[in-house]
Nucleic acid binder design. Structure first.
Lengths: 235, 235
DNA sequence: CGCAAAGTTGATCATAGTCAAGTTCTGTGG
DNA sequence: CCACAGAACTTGACTATGATCAACTTTGCG
């Protein structure tokens, strides 16, 4: 409230794209949001850039503003296991608020930008804005719920069902509406990694769905024509 | 501090068994712990009793004092998926601190007792004791980490490796030291459910390990002779 | 045009689930 | 004390799902 007239508001206005929304800011006043944004820094991110590495001390809290990233976890056999997309408005690096290392690796999958807070700023902010703390922990609960879902999927669903699930999820999260369906950029390889099936199983299944007219494939792109059909597929 | 001389301290002394420790109380003063315990109620729990049901509104925060329970998640195909043991000192029902339904089902697997706080008490307590709030969210982070581990295990490990992992985990969590190894109560069926393998795969693998002298089976019990051998097994 | 990344297809194989038909164990009541 | 019911467990045969691999084609870019 004391900061109300400060020039930081101008800085924050440039930081966020118009129409930007994040659950992190839910229930905060415009003034509060400006203060929170002003306390952080903005950083451009590039494709394949690693933003946090599992096991490293958690030093920064992030908010994805534009672009796309993903949570990964390295497995003991050297592969990296896809966990979840990070889309604009999502918060990550929550470990920063506790004295624990990052649990997962976050890697950008296309260029974009993030807001970053260092450890001290982040801790000061949640102390000053109780609602912000609530929002951070809500985000954590969402991740918990998503992980449980992923575990259930991996445990009790077939490769086909998991692929269907991932297509529907992708359509919702990263899809663009077209007159004849929902289109999104996704290589077979990435889809396979998301659903945790082999590249060949993915290719095989997509071919079958294409021949049934449920979707159309092109290089690096999928046009989902009847998502309903897939939804019924994976219950 | 105002409550210091109140008779509630006597009540709390009866509530907790001697030597009881919980990460929930980490860093709290003895007086604070007494106040927190006094604000809650104690309840006996019985084998197979359901303490919270996924999807129900979260009304109570629990701390397991004695006995054993487990987190489960119902799958869409009607089975229940084992997630994790709950042992004395563990906190559950964390959703109570947020306005969301329980994410998982918790069921007692043997009789014991819990401390329970209702929604309002729980929220008041974390407001009064910042360290308590921290501890609650640390617990959440632990669950997150455990879930990620479970997902990695289910995704990148063989049935054999998962069984080995569960035996080692069980030895640590619910095992009793013997001169010739670590013994714990576990039926094949429950072990199978934990490792998410079929009953027959579990039986098969245990037989092999028994013939190699790594463990000894008896009805409902396992005596783990050389855990090291299993540890090396699941990397 | 040529090259690399992306995708296809079909054959083969391994892992672990399913099932049937058993055996052993343990507590209970006659 | 024994019979027996039922739970716990065993064993082996069979099967299905999906991974692996090789050889191939297609696509898009410089």
């Amino acid at each position: 409230m004391i900061d109300e007239g400060k020039p930081v508001s101008a800085a924050s206005a440039t930081a966020l794209p118009p129409g930007f929304r994040s659950s992190l800011f839910e229930g905060l006043t415009h003034t509060e949001i400006e203060a929170v944004v002003a306390a952080g820094g903005q950083r451009r991110i590039f494709s394949n850039q690693v933003l946090q590495q599992e096991g490293d001390p958690a030093t920064h809290l992030f908010l994805l503003v534009t672009g796309r990233a993903a949570f990964y976890k390295h497995t003991s056999d050297g592969r990296k296991l896809f966990l979840q997309w990070i889309v604009p408005g999502d918060t990550f690096g929550l470990s920063t608020l506790q004295r624990v290392p990052y649990l997962t690796t976050v890697q950008a999958v296309r260029e974009g930008s993030v807001l970053v807070w260092d450890r001290d700023s982040a801790r000061a902010l949640v102390r000053q804005h109780p609602r912000l703390r609530e929002n951070v922990y809500s985000a954590m609960t969402c991740y918990l719920a998503a992980l449980i879902d992923a575990l259930v999927a991996r445990t009790s669903q077939t490769a086909q069902q998991r692929l269907a699930r991932m297509l529907v999820e992708s359509a919702r999260q990263i899809g663009r509406a077209r007159h004849d369906g929902i289109e999104f950029d996704l290589t077979n390889e990435r889809l396979a990694e998301m659903a945790d099936v082999s590249l060949f199983t993915a290719s095989h299944q997509l071919s079958e769905w294409q021949s049934r007219g449920i979707l159309t494939k092109s290089r690096g792109k999928i046009l989902l024509r009847s998502p309903e059909h897939l939804v019924s597929h994976h219950f």
